[in-house]
Each structure stands twice: as structure tokens, then as C-alpha cells.
Design a protein around this nucleic acid. Sequence first.
DNA 1: GCATCTGCCTAAAACCTTTAGGCAAATAGT
DNA 2: ACTATTTGCCTAAAGGTTTTAGGCAGATGC
Lengths: 189, 189
Amino acid sequence: MVRAGLTLERLTRAGAELADEVGFDQVTVSALARRFDVKVASLYSHLKNSHDLRTRIALLALEELADRGAAALAGRAGKDALGAFADVYRDYAREHPGRYAAAQYRLDPEAAAASAGGRHSRMTRAILRGYDLTEPDETHAVRLLGSVFHGYVSLEAQGGFSHSAPDSQESWSRIVDALDALLRNWPAP
Amino acid sequence: MVRAGLTLERLTRAGAELADEVGFDQVTVSALARRFDVKVASLYSHLKNSHDLRTRIALLALEELADRGAAALAGRAGKDALGAFADVYRDYAREHPGRYAAAQYRLDPEAAAASAGGRHSRMTRAILRGYDLTEPDETHAVRLLGSVFHGYVSLEAQGGFSHSAPDSQESWSRIVDALDALLRNWPAP
DNA sequence: GCATCTGCCTAAAACCTTTAGGCAAATAGT
DNA sequence: ACTATTTGCCTAAAGGTTTTAGGCAGATGC
């Protein structure tokens, strides 16, 4: 009996690929076993259960996204940083729809704490350093940016903006312009 | 054998309740059958399959949301309309998390065409009539508003803004203020 | 009162999840 | 190098969900 060389690492990575190919909610322990040409039960020495698998894929996606965000932010500031960071989200979701869906998977508190969630909000806050916002407005703005990026990308993934003019890329650019303008002129309470 | 009185209508409605109670992705044909105290196979004379059930729940949620939006918009304009409409989304998602999740369910093109999606974008456009936007900026703004509402509500549902100051309600109000300011001063290309 | 139709049933196959227990390959101790 | 232990994948099995096929009885129509 030749060993397949299963590891948590490889299982998670293969799960992420599977998600991109067939959709995150089609990611199943069975499908993963099939992909490694191994019996299903074998995976249960590595994974606690199916929720565990999905959580690990989610954490992977969040890390990858944060890595890309950090790379995009390096050496940029102001609107330049804002646009680059926004594109990271959109491009990642388009390249890796399954992983992006995974990043939305509801994590339990411990997983959430161990996730790259903190890096994401710190990066968003770093972008806002290019604008003159003070607390609590900076926090409101962090939440607004997170909402727009996530919301736009989700709606786009659902096909919300396809088949209608103007095309999605143009709206995306103009929305980034609008957010930049808004952050430069954040209204007083 | 006493008949249970299953109809598409009742099944969809019960499915929506089930979604709110146990989460949309726990909505299963089996669970629904259990709720009607009926054998699973019996539902298949009413429903094509499990995707069909989920689609119908999604359509119901979109209609309900559109109805609430229409009610909120009646007699309002400008920022008043914007804030009321925004609250409709947020309140609906908080009251009916399962239904709101359903409203995000990926519809196939025919279902999407028959959905209340069109009403939603028409209502958003109606709000923008209180601001001086011309095409294509109006469309960009429609997409921005949709993204913010959906994005914020999704992140909030995921627990994104809980356990941290300032509280979510305050951010929500300030974000609506900010959007109003932005729409009044939409940047030229 | 009979015929038809409709609604819910039983049966069954296919697939996914998860647990328990076993054998063989890898690894470590002497 | 040989034994002992650990580790990795296996078989087996139980329980749940999905979906199709075919049947019987209660509701509906003539």
C-alpha cells in the first residue's frame, strides 16, 4: 500500500483549488478524497470534520488576500493606495471565486481570532492615514470601505452588473474616485 | 390518511421560516418534510428539487424586501429616502437573517429575470432622483449604494462589527450621512 | 355513483458524513 | 539490524439527504 502523503497543508490547498473549480459549497470531504484517490475515512485523521475543512480553506483565503493587500500597499499612499487595495479584492474574487466565497464563511470566534481579519482592518486603516480622519470617523470609514469592497465584489460575482452598460470596470473606477473624494471631504457629524 | 395540505405557497413560506430559525444552508427538503410531518418524497410533487426550493425562498425574500423598500420610500425624498431605504435592508437582515441569506442565493437567469431585482434597482434610482446625477454617474451611484447596503449588512451579519466601538448603529448612521454628502458632491470624472 | 385526478405513501438507489477498529509502512530505540 | 511504537490509510458500518418510480386512497367531476 503506497501512502498518498496527505497533510493538512495539502488538503487545505487542494480544497481551495476545488472551491475555485466547483464552488465553495460543493467542497466536500468526499470530493477531496476522490481528488487524492484515497478513501473518505482517511481524511478524518487529518480533519476534524467537514466544517473544519471549510474553515481552513477560509483562513487560507484570508491570508492570501491579506498578503496581496500588503504587497499592493507597499510604497503607495492616498488615492493610489486606495485604488490598488480595492483592485486586490476585486481581482482576487475574479481569479478565485471559490476562495473568495470561502473568505465569507462564518468562522467561529477562535478561528476568527486566529484569522487574517486583523491584518485586513489594519491595512484599511493604513490607507486612511493618507486622509485627515480622526476617531471615531476613521472607524466608520474603515467599515464603509470594507462594505463597499465586499459588497461590490459579491454583487459582481452574482452577475449583478453584467449585461448592462456601463461596464463593471468603469463603475469600479468611478466608485474608487468617489470614495477618494468622500474621504477627502468627510462630513462633520 | 389525512392530507397535510401542502402547497408551493405554504412550502416556500415554511422554508423561509426554517431559514430564519436554522440558517439558510440548513434548509433542506428533509427538514421541511419533517416540519409538515410528511414523508420527504411527498414534497417532490410540489418542488422540482432542492435548488428549486431555495430559489423560491430567495424570490420570496427579494419580494418582501422590495415591498418594505417601497413602503419606506413612499412620501420621502432626498436624504430622508436614502436613510429609510438603507434601514429597510439592515432591519430586514437583522429580523430575518435566513431570508436575507436566501436573497443572496445565486439565481439562474430565468429566476433572476422573474425576481424583484428590477424593483430594487428602480427604487434605488428613484432615491437618486433627489440628487443631481446624470448618466452614467447615476448607474455608478446605484451600484455603489447597492454595494454599501449589501456589504455592510453582510459584514454585520458575520459579526464583523460586534464587540468593538463605536457600535454598529452609529457607523450606519454616519455612513448614510457620508453617502448623502457624496451624492450631493459627486466628483466629475 | 362511477371515473378520474391528485396527494401522500412505500421502496429503493446514490451520495455524503462520521466513527470504530485493523493492518502495514515509516520511524525510533537499542 | 531488529524490535517496538507510532502513523497513515484501509474496511466496515450506521445515519442522513436527495431524487425517482410506482401505488393506494381521498377529493373532485360527470
